[in-house]
């Protein structure tokens, strides 16, 4: 009884606050346009319809946008985590001259918001002939993923005991071998944390994808939906909400299976 009061009741309150918009998405997905505006009880679907879902999947390029987003999110995650891992390793374990400066510079990189950057960045993208090329988003997203991931991995690597690699070094292992064979396996929880973080941020990115991609075939979920389902002052609410829900699915799956690693990895990197 006490447990109910101390855990489930407050948890339910949080649940209501955090999940209410998703309940609304779910309801809107299955409501006809008419019922959305005229209903005796907004929390119920009286005349359900699947038409929004089928329209979304058959009359728009949703599946392609979804595929594009998935590609960009996965690729930028892999790139960023890899780059961040070797950077963090270099900073923490190799202690080359200037490593302190590099680590500070990377933190500072985090404070630059995309809203400032996109016009000057566009000039560069054009010069590189990267405009409207889907893969171009991968290095672009890395600009905001690498600083955070590097910070996280620096924290994580710091807490891995040095004895391990010193033993390997005695056995004649090179730095590269230590980087790959010794530290990498131990760093996996930290890497998963970084990966989940990166995946989430790149999955949701909007501004760069809007500005740097043009063709319908290169749009991501957020951009495709807002650019093709908002028609002037008429919003295709049912399709928009259905697309939002379907768009959350991959992330929710990732979290369901990896949330423990995520927490463990993060925990490892913030330990004193």
């Amino acid at each position: 009884m006490l447990r109910l009061l101390k855990i489930y009741v407050p948890l339910a309150l949080f649940g209501v606050f955090l999940l209410l918009p998703f309940l609304w998405m779910l309801l809107t997905t299955f409501k006809s346009n008419q019922e959305l505006l005229n209903t005796p009880n907004p929390f119920w679907v009286f005349h359900g319809t699947f038409s929004h879902v089928t329209d979304l999947l058959t009359q728009t390029a949703y599946l392609q946008w979804f595929g594009n987003t998935l590609f960009v999110a996965v690729a930028s995650t892999v790139l960023s985590v890899f780059v961040s891992y070797i950077t963090a390793y270099a900073i923490i374990r190799l202690r080359f001259p200037g490593s302190e400066v590099v680590s500070t510079a990377i933190f500072l990189a985090y404070i630059v918001p995309p809203a400032i950057l996109f016009i000057p960045l566009a000039t560069i993208i054009i010069q590189l002939h990267w405009f409207d090329k889907l893969w171009a988003l991968v290095p672009i997203y890395a600009t905001f993923l690498v600083p955070f991931c590097t910070w996280l991995l620096i924290g994580f690597l710091k807490n891995i005991p040095r004895e391990l690699e010193e033993a390997a070094r005695v056995d004649g292992a090179s730095n590269i071998a230590i980087l790959w064979r010794i530290i990498f396996p131990i760093a996996v929880p930290g890497l998963i944390s970084a990966a989940i973080f990166s995946f989430t941020l790149s999955w949701n990115e909007y501004l760069y994808a809007l500005v740097f991609m043009s063709s319908s075939g290169n749009k991501t979920v957020s951009v495709g939906m807002t650019s093709e389902l908002i028609r002037g002052d008429v919003f295709q609410w049912g399709q928009l909400m259905a697309g939002a829900l379907i768009g959350v699915l991959p992330a929710i799956l990732v979290y369901f299976f990896f949330v423990e690693y995520y927490v463990a990895g993060l925990s490892g990197s913030v330990k004193e």
């Binding site: 809007l210 500005v211 807002t226 908002i230």
Partner: peptide
């Protein structure tokens, strides 16, 4: 190519 009418300005 098409974009939402509010996003035409930035493009």
């Amino acid at each position: 190519q098409s974009l939402s009418w509010n996003d035409m300005g930035p493009k």
